[in-house]
Design a protein around this nucleic acid. Structure first.
Length: 108
DNA sequence: GTTTTGACGGCGG
DNA sequence: TCCGCCGCCAAAA
């Protein structure tokens, strides 16, 4: 494996996120047993750019803020994608974040 | 080789 | 409740 297994695990979890739902870096990190390593999840997302099957737009921080929107093709593409899935985004923040939140542990 | 930074979040004060 | 420090670890400077 060229990349760390951790990265691939992160991508696997992100792929599980249902359409119209979102999750957080911390939730993914916790699911992988590395609660404090939420930063690495962010790195994994950055590395997921060459992976078209990883819906990174469904991953936001715990505040529901689109912290990674600046890393997308366009600054607004992330909010646009979420909006297309029925998730309302205002001021780079997900409306009813808690309502759309999807916890990977819920999949267990 | 060392230091800083980064798509975060938990914990302490 | 709000503010600030710490941890985690990989990549870039």
């Amino acid at each position: 494996m060229s990349e760390s297994q951790f990265f691939e695990d992160v991508w696997a979890v992100v792929r599980m996120v249902p359409r119209g739902r979102i999750t957080t870096y911390g939730a993914i990190a916790k699911y992988l047993g590395a609660t404090k390593s939420s930063r690495m999840v962010g790195w994994a997302m950055n590395a997921s750019h060459f992976r078209t099957d990883v819906p990174a737009h469904r991953v936001v921080n715990r505040n529901g803020l689109l912290t990674g929107k600046n890393h997308f093709e366009s600054a607004d593409s992330m909010a646009l994608l979420l909006n297309a899935e029925g998730i309302l985004v205002v001021n780079d923040c997900v409306v009813d974040f808690k309502k759309h939140f999807w916890d990977p542990e819920d999949q267990l």
